[in-house]
């Protein structure tokens, strides 16, 4: 499978502080458009303590929906959209060269039968993992997967003790997202 889609330009929108007292400190918000789907997409890079960004994206038209991360748009252009999201890592590393990055493959909701996919090894996780492994090398990051929660973590090698950093990040996310798997 070819993963050399060029992606689209990312436009920085704003830096939004988070004051809920959690480990989530601020969010960088970006926007991009797909001429194929004709939708605008919002990408959120949520910065947490331990120097890790959680990457999330959704179609702007779904921004008010509780299921925005679970909705299948089904208009195609998947690889350009995902490569655009990964390009945010390049951008963010310029200002945060020691940053690590993580993401979850959200559960899919079938609107016809009103059913939700299991949270382990989701279809999104399987697709995202394959693309990340093929487009991000192992010089800058060490790669970790968490199939039980469909999670992927890129630990920055500038962190020094990678295993310790991975453990700290994992503990921080467990503390912060204690209700992650509820749709």
């Amino acid at each position: 499978m070819i993963f050399n889609s060029p992606g689209y330009p990312l436009r920085f929108i704003q830096r939004q502080l988070c004051r809920d007292g959690s480990d989530h400190l601020f969010t960088l918000i970006y926007k991009f458009n797909s001429p194929i789907t004709r939708y605008a997409y919002i990408l959120r890079a949520e910065y947490h303590s331990e120097g890790v960004f959680a990457l999330k994206f959704y179609a702007q038209k779904d921004s008010k929906s509780d299921y925005k991360y679970s909705h299948i748009v089904n208009k195609g252009d998947v690889f350009n959209i995902l490569i655009t999201c990964l390009r945010s890592v390049q951008l963010i590393l310029k200002d945060y060269p020691d940053a690590s990055f993580g993401f979850i493959g959200a559960r899919t909701i079938d609107p016809i039968s009103n059913r939700a996919e299991d949270f382990e090894n989701t279809q999104r996780f399987r697709v995202y993992s394959q693309i990340v492994e093929a487009t991000i090398g192992d010089q800058t990051f060490d790669h970790f997967i968490y199939e039980s929660v469909s999670g992927y973590l890129l630990v920055n090698r500038n962190a020094g003790d990678i295993d310790n950093k991975e453990q700290l990040i994992r503990q921080m996310f467990t503390r912060t997202y204690n209700n992650l798997l509820n749709i």
Binding site: N114, R115, D118, F144, V149
Partner: peptide
């Protein structure tokens, strides 16, 4: 969703991350 046996939305339960064994595996 039916074909793959997914969970009906009204039966989806809240699961805390702390209750799931989250073990990282190096790629």
């Amino acid at each position: 969703g039916e074909r793959l046996g997914w969970t009906p939305l009204d039966q989806v339960q809240s699961v805390t991350l702390a209750s799931v064994i989250v073990k990282g595996k190096r790629v």
